[in-house]
C-alpha cells in the first residue's frame, strides 16, 4: 500500500535563507502524525509544499503516490488543508461556504447536504447557518474550516495548530473526529506547539529544526530511546531549548 504522504528531499529557499533543507518522511494510512518544531523551523513551509501552496526548489511531495506538482488535481482531491488562521470568505454565509466547499471537492449534492447537517449539529453551529462568516469568532471560523475539510472525506488532513482558538468541548470533538478519521484508514498530519495534545493523540512525531528533520519515530519509541523523558524534554533537547530551564532559574535569581 502506498504511503499517503511522501516527502522526498523537499527543499525551499527564500533568498539566502534555507527554510527547508532536504526533508524526507512518509505518512502511512491509519496514522496520526504530529509535526513539531520551534517557530521558524520550517513546519509551515513543508506543509505548504506538500499542499501545493509553495513550489519546492528541490525534491518532491507525493500524496497517495501522486506528485503534487505533476498531477495536482488528482493529488489535491485526496487531502484537505486547514491553516492555523481560518481565512474564510467573510461575506459568505456559513451554509453557502460549506456548500461551496462541497462543490469544489465534487461531493454529490445530497451527500454534501447530509454531511453538512450532521457536522453542523455536532459542532453546535446549525443555528448560525445563515450568518455571515465575518461575524464569527476565530474559534467558530476554525470549526467551519474543519467541517469544510471533512466534507469530502479526504485520505489525509493536513492541519496547522488544529485546536488553537477552540473551546474545550470543540477541541475534544475535533480530537475525537480526527481519531475516528484515522480509524477509518485515513491519515492526519498536523503541526502543533501543544505537546500534550501531540503526546496524547499522535502515533508518531516528526521533529524539525532549521529546516532539517531531527527525529521521526512513534512517541513511545522516542521516549524509550531517550530514557523515558517527556515529549517536552525530548523536544527541548533536540531543538536546543534545554537551556531554557537554566535561563529561567537565572532570571529568578536576578530578581
Amino acid at each position: 500500500m502506498p504511503y499517503i504522504i511522501e516527502a522526498k528531499g523537499l527543499r525551499k529557499q527564500f533568498g539566502d535563507f534555507t527554510a527547508v533543507d532536504g526533508v524526507d518522511f512518509n505518512i502511512n494510512p491509519g496514522e496520526i502524525v504530529g509535526f513539531l518544531g520551534p517557530n521558524g523551523a520550517g513546519k509551515t513551509t513543508t506543509i505548504k509544499m506538500i499542499t501545493g501552496l509553495l513550489e519546492p526548489d528541490g525534491g518532491h511531495a507525493l500524496v497517495t503516490g501522486l506528485d503534487i506538482q505533476k498531477e495536482p488535481l488528482k493529488a489535491k482531491a485526496q487531502f484537505a488543508y486547514v491553516p492555523d488562521t481560518p481565512n474564510l470568505y467573510g461575506k459568505l454565509k456559513e451554509i453557502e461556504y460549506l456548500r461551496f466547499m462541497g462543490q469544489l471537492y465534487h461531493v454529490p449534492s445530497d451527500l454534501a447536504e447530509e454531511r453538512i447537517k450532521q457536522l453542523l449539529d455536532l459542532f453546535g453551529l446549525t443555528d448560525k447557518a445563515g450568518n455571515y462568516l465575518d461575524g464569527f469568532s476565530h474559534g467558530m471560523q476554525q470549526k467551519v474550516a474543519i467541517i469544510g475539510a471533512l466534507l469530502h472525506d479526504p485520505k489525509v488532513i493536513l492541519m496547522d495548530e488544529p485546536t488553537v482558538g477552540l473551546d474545550p468541548r470543540s477541541a475534544r470533538l475535533v480530537k475525537d473526529l480526527l481519531v475516528q478519521h484515522r480509524d477509518n484508514g485515513n491519515a492526519i498530519f498536523f503541526s502543533s506547539h501543544i505537546l500534550e495534545i501531540v503526546q496524547n493523540m499522535c502515533d508518531r512525531v516528526i521533529i524539525i529544526n532549521h529546516g532539517v528533520i531531527l527525529a521521526d519515530a512513534p512517541v513511545d519509541e522516542l521516549r524509550e530511546m531517550r530514557g523515558d523523558q517527556s515529549l517536552e524534554d525530548i523536544f527541548l533537547e533536540l531543538t536546543g531549548g534545554k537551556d531554557v530551564d537554566d535561563m529561567v532559574k537565572e532570571l529568578g535569581n536576578a530578581r
Partner: peptide, 16 residues
Amino acid sequence: GAASQDIGEQPGVFGR
C-alpha cells in the same frame, strides 16, 4: 453576535 438563522432544506444556489 448576529441573529440566529436556520439551515434551509433546499441545497440553494451553491448546492445545485
